[in-house]
Simulated scan of single mutants.
Amino acid sequence: MEHEQAAARAGVVIRELRELGEFEQVYRLFDEIWHPEPANAPVTVELMAGFAHTGNYVAGAFAGDAMVGASVGFLAADRSLHSHVTGAVIGKGVGYALKLHQRAWCQERGLERITWTFDPLVRRNAYFNLVKLGARPEAYLTEFYGAMADAINEGDASDRLLAVWRVHEEEKEKEGAEDAYPLVREADDGQPLVAEDARGRRVVLVGTPRDVERLRRQDAAAAMAWRMAVREALGGAMAAGARVTRFTEGGEYVVVMNERAR
């Protein structure tokens, strides 16, 4: 099966977690990834125990005895699983294998979709979600988590895109970007450059910074300028009914505008 092949390529075994010691391993792994303040952990040991006990999704990826990835999700409305948090070592294919395992878990239970949130400014996550997996953003959520106290997100607004991944594969709309209008792009100095007027445009591009996490550390004002620019352009378009159809190799969302809002 596809998820088993992906796990084998990543050199891991993925399985559901049931024991307290396993949940403690997940907690330590997430602590190493995000370095959160103690009161701001992505998920607690107690919550994982409750989730697993009530039939929700708590899984870990193991390379030998070492846990190198984990994912925690809970059943939600409309026959869906909300994937609350997934973390893995970068560059090993573990995250991809976890998501395929998660999809197979949902298929076995007759679920129809998986949802999760991600930071629209983080290019690698947008590429992974939209290109590698084929999920699609269906809502722009402003300050979804409020203030976040961890090493990656601290000092920035917690805007998120809601990704929706259909459990059963379907053909995705792939609007071409050749004639799209660059609504937000990166200027030579790394700042966001926002076009003055996109009225009447059918397809627009909303760019992202090359490395927003580094930018937050080096130039917090520039990182916040990107946040506001993408919030206004992408968030505003989606609120008016626009659809995000793909993500380019250059780090741009391809957005098909709602005809009534153009």
Rank of each mutant, 00 (worst) to 15 (best):
G50W: 13
K99Q: 10
V72C: 03
L130G: 01
P120A: 05
G93A: 08
M67Q: 07
T115L: 10
I33L: 15
A97H: 08
K132H: 02
E173H: 13
A151I: 03
S158N: 02
S158F: 03
G87L: 05
G69T: 01
V43I: 15
H35Q: 13
T117L: 03
A61W: 10
L162M: 13
L29K: 09
R103Q: 06
Y127R: 02
V164S: 03
V45W: 11
E154K: 09
N153E: 12
P120N: 03
R160P: 07
W116H: 11
I114K: 11
H84R: 13
N40P: 00
W116A: 08
Y96E: 07
F62L: 05
E32N: 12
G87K: 10
C106M: 12
V122C: 01
A39C: 11
W34Q: 08
A149K: 14
E46W: 12
T44F: 05
E112R: 15
E169F: 14
T142S: 11
G60L: 06
I152R: 04
E171G: 09
H53L: 14
E171K: 13
Q102I: 08
V94P: 07
R123Y: 04
M48T: 03
A139E: 09
D78S: 13
A139C: 06
G155P: 04
G110L: 06
W165K: 10
G155R: 13
M48N: 06
G69R: 11
G93K: 10
E138Q: 11
L100S: 08
N125I: 07
R113W: 13
G146I: 07
R123E: 00
E32Y: 11
R109W: 12
E154V: 02
P36R: 01
L75E: 09
A39S: 14
D119A: 02
F74Q: 01
E170A: 09
F128V: 03
E154H: 11
G73K: 12
V94D: 04
T142K: 12
E143W: 01
L121C: 03
I33A: 05
W116M: 00
M48L: 09
G87H: 10
V94L: 07
N40H: 15
L47P: 00
